[in-house]
Design a protein around this nucleic acid. Structure first.
Lengths: 217, 217, 217, 217
DNA sequence: GATGAATGAGCATTCATTCAT
DNA sequence: CATGAATGAATGCTCATTCAT
């Protein structure tokens, strides 16, 4: 099961990938252990053992332990920062009132829930390691600033001009939406273990809280 | 400056502390380096050098590297989870309408901002390490559940019964408030470096978004 | 250019050689890198890369890294120990007074200078590795003792009997001549890099010092 | 026995040394194995085992394997390049004819023989490693050029002006003397293993060859 | 209490060599 | 013939921890 998503990750690198069996095994093992113990506390021998390969094999495929981390994390950062639909759907909805913004928000939330469910360990790794690796920070920042922010900004400015939402500064609005959605998803899908909850109902609550928060009263 | 807060931290351990000079130096050094490089990537020799003590001295005061981490982080977790006012102020406000809830919220936010400003490195350490250390998770969870949650729950139930705020599930409401405040604080005080911003205005925006989000329309 | 001398080397192995292109490339690369970094500090992967072949290919042609060294060094040792002319010219000169010994010496020196100029890296390898490899030491020793020493001994004994040179022990005389010539050549052609010097004049000085040293006064 | 000379070496560092027992053991072991197998082919674990210490202990005393090599070799280079008497005796002999030059030469040879006998392994290491380590080359070069060359040059110029020795270029004369002495010593004391020979007689032959080589006929 | 030398297990990485293709 | 993925032992070095002083 994991292998499927691994392959997806790699496919996104060049859109057509032949994953060596061993390379995939290393990647799968590394993702699992990095997520569980953290990058610095994981030894390459542990990864090798779990992947069922010799330790030297890791370094045939990845020049260093750090490069292995980046191979996992870089495509993940892009997929994390760029909601799949962001580049496609948003344009369609312009000019259709705040009702359709709620629909965008709903689609966004479900899209991110879907992504989170499929990439729990990788998201954990990103959250845990991004503080220590400048490359990761820059990748996230630049991806977000070039791919995501401009479109969301455009949308929000449009909604504000039409008087549908409050004239709170754009960054504040965006941060409000993102932290609310992120808080929900991280809490519900990444960190919690138990959680028998009604997903649909909870999502509607989140949407409601956000929409009422930003709407003009 | 750092030293002052270090001493505060330790004082909170037993409310009367004699900090050996060396012990304090170790603590200060450890906090700084743990925050910067992460627990696993920090060596005790590095801490010793920065603290200006011999490596053996660390182990005279703390049985292991991990215990040093916990000595830093445990009092921090309590101070993080229990807003200073939680145990004191909340009671006063009961029965006074949603207007005063806004005041509680405001006080809560400023209190946490103040705490964040004074404890940036320690908060960083907690955020980065809590994923890997069960003790920390349990400490946070039990502190929150015993000290914070019941009081906040009581307050929110009260507000809901009076019809001031939506009948969204309590946990959802709490998570909404916390993630919004936390998102603001982490973004503004813990992670960002630049940030010339008008604190007062931004706080009012956050309050506004939250209040409108949870209020009955 | 290097390749030419490589081929010469190999030809001397069996006097008729078909050098595979790849085999020659490996040899050329190995000579260069061994000379520069030393045998032990050179990796087969480095040789393979520089030779433009796969790492496995090296081991198809040479059973081990050490055998590759010996393949380079053994023919070199013979060519180093046996001055080309030694087997041919010496006889011609017997019985003709010390004047002609000076000519033999001159020819010997120019012959070795020529050899040195063409085989700088290989000579370096021999000098650096002979201390560690018994096979090399024995090859040098037995080649010298069987091919060179007897003829030189014969010549010197003859000169001594004729009263042309001092009755210093033969080994001492030989060592004196060899170290003086070797010292000149190593210093001038193998180790030094700059060296704008008048070769002809310097050679005559060396000859002069040797001749006066050994001649009866 | 070895330990004595080790201590001498270190004493020369600061003229008063407290050699830790372990540090000396590491040094002794490293000298022996480096001399036997070469620096690159010697592992730190081997040194540790032979020295009877833990491998980590090596790195407590020497930051790296290379620094251990240099700790051995640097004082050795100075002692090798600067004959003890060079700085003291030479002046005394000026102006006393070529007879006394023979005495200087004799003293020089015995002094170097003495040094060679006591430092066989270290001299081996220097000879074997100097080709690969720029630091060593520079140390030898600068020591020789600043401490030895000027004095010898002065002496030879003086002898030439008095008409005692040939007007061969100074560098050629120096190289001739050094290679002859070095060839003798390396052959007799550093490389050969057997060698029952009459030292005194052999030395006089060497002196004779050199003196006759350089003297005006 | 404080030191810092000593430890030895463990680390990331390299290496010569093998072998299926 | 040639390849290059795979190996696993070995390497130089670091680490948390101990302990005699």
């Amino acid at each position: 099961m994991d292998k499927i998503y691994i392959k997806q990750l790699l496919e996104s690198e060049g859109d057509e990938v032949k994953l060596t069996e061993k390379k995939a095994a290393i990647l799968v093992a590394a993702i699992e252990i990095f997520a569980e113990k953290g990058y610095a506390a994981t030894s390459t021998s542990e990864i090798a053992k779990q992947a069922g390969v010799a330790e030297g094999t890791i370094f045939r495929h990845y020049a260093s332990k750090k490069e292995l981390l980046l191979a996992i994390v870089k495509p993940g950062i892009m997929k994390l920062a760029i909601p799949y639909f962001a580049s496609q759907v948003v344009e369609d909805v312009f000019g259709q009132g705040n009702n359709s913004f709620e629909d965008i928000l709903r689609e966004f939330i479900y899209n991110r829930i879907d992504f989170a469910k499929k990439n729990v360990p990788m998201i954990r790794i990103i959250l845990q390691e991004i503080a220590f690796h400048t490359e990761m920070q820059q990748a996230l920042k630049s991806t977000f600033l070039s791919e995501v922010y401009p479109k969301v900004e455009e949308l929000i400015v449009d909604l504000q001009q039409k008087g549908h939402i409050k004239s709170v500064p754009i960054d504040t609005t965006i941060r409000f939406i993102i932290t609310t959605v992120l808080g929900f998803i991280l809490h519900q899908y990444i960190f919690s273990t138990n959680a028998t909850f009604n997903e649909e109902v909870e999502v509607e609550h989140v949407i409601d809280l956000i929409m009422d928060g930003i709407q003009k009263s």
